[in-house]
Amino acid sequence: MSTAHPQVRRPGTLPALVLALTAAVLLTLTGCSSTPGAAASDSGTVAVGAPSSDGGKADQDGASDGDAEPSGGTEGGAPAAPAEVDIPSVGITSSLMDLGLNADGTVEVPPAEKGMTAGWYTGGAVPGETGAAVIIGHNDTRFGKAVFHDLKKIAKGADITVTDERGETAHFTVTATESVSKNSFPTDKVYGPTDDRALRLITCDGDFDAQGHPVNNLIVYATLA
Protein backbone atom coordinates (compact mmCIF):
# COMPACT_ATOMS: atom_id res chain seq x y z
CA MET A 1 0.00 0.00 0.00
CA SER A 2 1.20 3.45 -0.80
CA THR A 3 1.72 5.51 2.32
CA ALA A 4 1.58 8.82 0.47
CA HIS A 5 -1.56 10.71 -0.41
CA PRO A 6 -3.07 9.46 -3.67
CA GLN A 7 -2.26 11.45 -6.78
CA VAL A 8 -5.23 13.37 -8.12
CA ARG A 9 -6.07 12.52 -11.70
CA ARG A 10 -9.20 13.04 -13.77
CA PRO A 11 -10.53 10.49 -16.30
CA GLY A 12 -8.81 10.78 -19.63
CA THR A 13 -5.59 12.30 -18.24
CA LEU A 14 -3.59 9.13 -17.57
CA PRO A 15 -0.20 9.03 -19.29
CA ALA A 16 -0.14 7.38 -22.69
CA LEU A 17 2.17 4.67 -21.38
CA VAL A 18 -0.40 3.68 -18.77
CA LEU A 19 -3.23 3.73 -21.30
CA ALA A 20 -1.27 1.31 -23.46
CA LEU A 21 -1.41 -1.40 -20.79
CA THR A 22 -3.47 -4.43 -21.79
CA ALA A 23 -5.74 -6.69 -19.80
CA ALA A 24 -2.98 -9.27 -19.71
CA VAL A 25 -0.95 -7.05 -17.40
CA LEU A 26 -1.78 -7.52 -13.73
CA LEU A 27 -2.02 -4.60 -11.37
CA THR A 28 -1.85 -4.90 -7.58
CA LEU A 29 -4.52 -3.11 -5.61
CA THR A 30 -4.14 -2.99 -1.84
CA GLY A 31 -7.58 -3.42 -0.42
CA CYS A 32 -7.73 -3.98 3.33
CA SER A 33 -6.05 -5.66 6.24
CA SER A 34 -6.85 -8.82 8.11
CA THR A 35 -7.31 -7.64 11.66
CA PRO A 36 -6.61 -4.52 13.72
CA GLY A 37 -2.98 -4.50 14.83
CA ALA A 38 -1.81 -6.68 11.95
CA ALA A 39 1.96 -6.54 11.70
CA ALA A 40 3.97 -5.52 8.66
CA SER A 41 1.35 -5.08 5.95
CA ASP A 42 -1.84 -3.05 6.13
CA SER A 43 -3.61 -5.19 3.62
CA GLY A 44 -3.91 -8.09 1.31
CA THR A 45 -3.46 -7.65 -2.41
CA VAL A 46 -5.90 -7.91 -5.27
CA ALA A 47 -4.69 -9.05 -8.69
CA VAL A 48 -6.58 -6.76 -11.04
CA GLY A 49 -6.23 -6.91 -14.84
CA ALA A 50 -5.31 -3.53 -16.27
CA PRO A 51 -8.48 -1.54 -17.05
CA SER A 52 -8.95 -0.85 -20.76
CA SER A 53 -7.76 2.48 -22.10
CA ASP A 54 -11.33 3.81 -22.32
CA GLY A 55 -11.66 3.53 -18.55
CA GLY A 56 -14.87 1.51 -18.78
CA LYS A 57 -16.73 4.16 -20.73
CA ALA A 58 -18.98 2.95 -23.50
CA ASP A 59 -19.11 4.56 -26.94
CA GLN A 60 -21.51 7.44 -26.44
CA ASP A 61 -23.04 6.82 -29.88
CA GLY A 62 -24.07 3.38 -28.70
CA ALA A 63 -25.25 4.31 -25.23
CA SER A 64 -28.80 3.24 -24.53
CA ASP A 65 -29.65 6.58 -22.92
CA GLY A 66 -27.04 8.78 -24.55
CA ASP A 67 -29.54 11.61 -25.05
CA ALA A 68 -30.09 12.01 -21.33
CA GLU A 69 -28.28 14.84 -19.55
CA PRO A 70 -25.32 13.40 -17.59
CA SER A 71 -25.67 13.58 -13.83
CA GLY A 72 -23.73 16.54 -12.46
CA GLY A 73 -22.79 17.73 -15.94
CA THR A 74 -23.60 20.92 -17.77
CA GLU A 75 -24.34 21.38 -21.44
CA GLY A 76 -21.00 21.39 -23.24
CA GLY A 77 -19.10 21.07 -19.94
CA ALA A 78 -17.31 18.32 -18.07
CA PRO A 79 -19.17 16.39 -15.37
CA ALA A 80 -18.30 17.22 -11.77
CA ALA A 81 -16.13 14.80 -9.83
CA PRO A 82 -17.80 12.78 -7.05
CA ALA A 83 -17.32 14.12 -3.53
CA GLU A 84 -19.30 11.78 -1.24
CA VAL A 85 -20.86 8.33 -1.15
CA ASP A 86 -23.76 7.46 1.15
CA ILE A 87 -25.27 4.01 1.77
CA PRO A 88 -28.03 4.50 4.40
CA SER A 89 -29.02 0.82 4.66
CA VAL A 90 -25.61 -0.14 6.08
CA GLY A 91 -24.71 3.13 7.79
CA ILE A 92 -21.87 4.14 5.45
CA THR A 93 -21.14 7.77 4.59
CA SER A 94 -17.77 8.92 3.32
CA SER A 95 -16.12 11.73 1.45
CA LEU A 96 -14.23 10.57 -1.64
CA MET A 97 -10.59 11.07 -2.50
CA ASP A 98 -9.28 10.64 -6.05
CA LEU A 99 -7.41 7.42 -6.84
CA GLY A 100 -5.34 6.95 -9.97
CA LEU A 101 -2.35 4.74 -10.73
CA ASN A 102 0.99 4.71 -8.94
CA ALA A 103 4.22 5.12 -10.91
CA ASP A 104 4.71 1.34 -10.90
CA GLY A 105 1.28 0.74 -12.46
CA THR A 106 -0.51 -0.31 -9.28
CA VAL A 107 -3.91 1.11 -8.42
CA GLU A 108 -3.86 3.75 -5.72
CA VAL A 109 -5.95 3.19 -2.59
CA PRO A 110 -6.62 5.39 0.43
CA PRO A 111 -3.68 5.29 2.85
CA ALA A 112 -4.19 3.23 6.01
CA GLU A 113 -4.40 6.32 8.20
CA LYS A 114 -7.41 7.39 6.12
CA GLY A 115 -9.13 4.03 6.31
CA MET A 116 -12.48 5.67 6.99
CA THR A 117 -12.36 7.47 3.64
CA ALA A 118 -13.26 5.77 0.36
CA GLY A 119 -11.79 6.66 -3.02
CA TRP A 120 -13.00 7.07 -6.59
CA TYR A 121 -10.85 5.51 -9.34
CA THR A 122 -10.42 8.39 -11.79
CA GLY A 123 -9.53 6.08 -14.67
CA GLY A 124 -13.15 4.93 -14.82
CA ALA A 125 -16.38 6.80 -15.41
CA VAL A 126 -17.71 9.64 -13.29
CA PRO A 127 -20.60 8.22 -11.22
CA GLY A 128 -23.83 8.92 -13.08
CA GLU A 129 -22.12 9.07 -16.48
CA THR A 130 -22.28 6.24 -19.03
CA GLY A 131 -19.71 3.60 -18.12
CA ALA A 132 -18.36 1.83 -15.05
CA ALA A 133 -17.55 4.05 -12.07
CA VAL A 134 -15.46 2.37 -9.36
CA ILE A 135 -15.24 3.28 -5.68
CA ILE A 136 -12.69 1.48 -3.48
CA GLY A 137 -12.59 1.33 0.31
CA HIS A 138 -10.82 -0.57 3.07
CA ASN A 139 -12.54 -3.21 5.18
CA ASP A 140 -10.03 -2.98 8.04
CA THR A 141 -6.59 -1.45 8.51
CA ARG A 142 -4.05 -1.68 11.33
CA PHE A 143 -5.98 1.17 12.93
CA GLY A 144 -9.19 -0.87 13.16
CA LYS A 145 -12.47 -1.06 11.27
CA ALA A 146 -12.54 0.94 8.06
CA VAL A 147 -15.14 2.62 5.87
CA PHE A 148 -16.41 -0.48 4.03
CA HIS A 149 -16.32 -2.85 7.01
CA ASP A 150 -20.10 -3.28 6.91
CA LEU A 151 -20.44 -3.29 3.12
CA LYS A 152 -20.97 -7.07 3.28
CA LYS A 153 -24.39 -6.37 4.83
CA ILE A 154 -25.69 -4.58 1.75
CA ALA A 155 -28.68 -6.14 0.00
CA LYS A 156 -29.97 -6.19 -3.55
CA GLY A 157 -32.19 -3.16 -4.13
CA ALA A 158 -30.32 -0.96 -1.64
CA ASP A 159 -29.77 2.70 -2.51
CA ILE A 160 -26.30 4.17 -2.98
CA THR A 161 -26.15 7.94 -3.33
CA VAL A 162 -23.13 9.71 -4.81
CA THR A 163 -22.95 13.49 -4.42
CA ASP A 164 -20.67 15.47 -6.71
CA GLU A 165 -18.64 18.61 -6.10
CA ARG A 166 -21.57 20.78 -7.23
CA GLY A 167 -23.92 19.18 -4.71
CA GLU A 168 -25.83 17.20 -7.36
CA THR A 169 -26.80 13.64 -6.42
CA ALA A 170 -26.94 10.41 -8.39
CA HIS A 171 -28.90 7.49 -6.92
CA PHE A 172 -27.86 3.93 -7.73
CA THR A 173 -29.72 0.70 -7.02
CA VAL A 174 -27.74 -2.41 -6.05
CA THR A 175 -28.30 -5.16 -8.60
CA ALA A 176 -25.90 -7.84 -7.33
CA THR A 177 -22.98 -8.62 -5.04
CA GLU A 178 -20.28 -11.25 -5.30
CA SER A 179 -17.28 -12.43 -3.33
CA VAL A 180 -14.46 -13.48 -5.65
CA SER A 181 -10.96 -14.81 -5.18
CA LYS A 182 -8.26 -12.19 -5.57
CA ASN A 183 -6.53 -14.65 -7.91
CA SER A 184 -9.45 -14.52 -10.34
CA PHE A 185 -10.65 -10.94 -10.15
CA PRO A 186 -13.27 -10.28 -12.91
CA THR A 187 -11.46 -7.37 -14.51
CA ASP A 188 -13.62 -7.02 -17.62
CA LYS A 189 -16.84 -7.32 -15.63
CA VAL A 190 -15.77 -4.58 -13.22
CA TYR A 191 -13.84 -2.18 -15.45
CA GLY A 192 -15.00 -3.09 -18.95
CA PRO A 193 -17.05 -0.78 -21.18
CA THR A 194 -20.79 -0.75 -20.58
CA ASP A 195 -23.74 1.22 -21.93
CA ASP A 196 -25.14 1.37 -18.39
CA ARG A 197 -24.52 4.18 -15.93
CA ALA A 198 -22.95 1.70 -13.56
CA LEU A 199 -21.27 1.81 -10.17
CA ARG A 200 -19.01 -0.79 -8.57
CA LEU A 201 -17.87 -0.77 -4.94
CA ILE A 202 -14.85 -2.90 -3.99
CA THR A 203 -13.40 -4.01 -0.67
CA CYS A 204 -11.84 -7.15 0.84
CA ASP A 205 -13.76 -10.22 1.98
CA GLY A 206 -13.45 -13.86 2.94
CA ASP A 207 -11.11 -15.94 5.05
CA PHE A 208 -7.49 -15.07 5.76
CA ASP A 209 -4.41 -16.60 4.17
CA ALA A 210 -1.26 -17.65 6.00
CA GLN A 211 -0.06 -14.02 6.07
CA GLY A 212 -3.32 -12.82 7.59
CA HIS A 213 -4.67 -11.23 4.40
CA PRO A 214 -8.27 -11.70 3.20
CA VAL A 215 -8.32 -14.01 0.19
CA ASN A 216 -11.39 -12.56 -1.55
CA ASN A 217 -12.83 -9.30 -2.79
CA LEU A 218 -16.40 -8.20 -2.25
CA ILE A 219 -17.80 -6.44 -5.32
CA VAL A 220 -21.11 -4.56 -5.23
CA TYR A 221 -22.76 -3.85 -8.59
CA ALA A 222 -25.28 -1.04 -8.99
CA THR A 223 -26.92 0.95 -11.78
CA LEU A 224 -28.33 4.46 -11.91
CA ALA A 225 -31.88 4.47 -10.56
Score class of each variant (00 low, 15 high):
210 A>I: 12
167 G>I: 01
24 A>P: 00
211 Q>I: 02
224 L>M: 15
92 I>K: 01
50 A>R: 08
17 L>E: 09
141 T>P: 02
34 S>N: 08
148 F>T: 13
143 F>P: 00
41 S>H: 08
43 S>A: 05
97 M>V: 07
171 H>V: 11
111 P>D: 08
120 W>V: 03
75 E>D: 04
208 F>I: 03
183 N>Y: 15
98 D>P: 13
213 H>T: 05
202 I>P: 06
94 S>N: 11
25 V>P: 04
218 L>I: 07
109 V>P: 01
152 K>A: 02
181 S>P: 15
79 P>C: 11
185 F>L: 05
125 A>N: 07
34 S>A: 06
51 P>N: 04
44 G>M: 15
183 N>Q: 15
209 D>V: 02
63 A>F: 07
59 D>A: 05
77 G>W: 12
26 L>I: 09
152 K>W: 00
145 K>P: 04
125 A>E: 10
70 P>L: 08
50 A>M: 08
21 L>K: 09
99 L>Q: 03
159 D>Y: 06
121 Y>C: 06
91 G>R: 11
171 H>T: 13
156 K>Y: 06
110 P>Y: 04
61 D>M: 12
72 G>Q: 10
28 T>L: 02
219 I>F: 03
104 D>M: 06
61 D>G: 08
178 E>C: 02
168 E>I: 08
56 G>N: 04
41 S>D: 14
89 S>T: 14
5 H>Y: 13
6 P>V: 01
170 A>D: 10
188 D>M: 02
122 T>A: 13
70 P>D: 14
206 G>R: 01
48 V>I: 04
37 G>C: 01
117 T>M: 14
61 D>C: 10
57 K>S: 02
102 N>P: 01
59 D>G: 03
35 T>I: 12
130 T>P: 00
26 L>R: 11
211 Q>L: 12
134 V>K: 02
6 P>W: 00
167 G>F: 05
225 A>P: 07
135 I>E: 09
67 D>T: 09
50 A>E: 02
142 R>K: 15
210 A>T: 14
196 D>T: 07
105 G>N: 14
174 V>W: 12
88 P>D: 13
1 M>Y: 00
50 A>T: 05
211 Q>H: 13
188 D>N: 10
21 L>H: 01
219 I>E: 09
144 G>V: 02
46 V>T: 12
60 Q>H: 11
29 L>A: 04
16 A>R: 11
95 S>R: 11
210 A>E: 15
169 T>F: 08
7 Q>H: 09
127 P>F: 05
38 A>R: 14
1 M>N: 09
179 S>E: 14
167 G>T: 04
150 D>Y: 15
10 R>Y: 15
89 S>H: 11
50 A>D: 00
205 D>N: 10
223 T>E: 14
140 D>S: 05
176 A>T: 08
31 G>A: 05
89 S>L: 10
50 A>W: 08
207 D>E: 14
180 V>K: 15
177 T>L: 15
137 G>E: 05
164 D>C: 03
50 A>H: 07
62 G>K: 07
106 T>K: 09
35 T>P: 00
76 G>S: 08
97 M>E: 03
205 D>G: 03
196 D>N: 15
198 A>Y: 09
75 E>N: 10
115 G>T: 13
15 P>A: 09
112 A>C: 13
169 T>M: 09
56 G>V: 00
224 L>Y: 06
144 G>R: 05
128 G>C: 12
59 D>F: 01
74 T>D: 12
88 P>H: 04
218 L>Y: 06
141 T>L: 06
13 T>D: 11
169 T>W: 08
59 D>V: 01
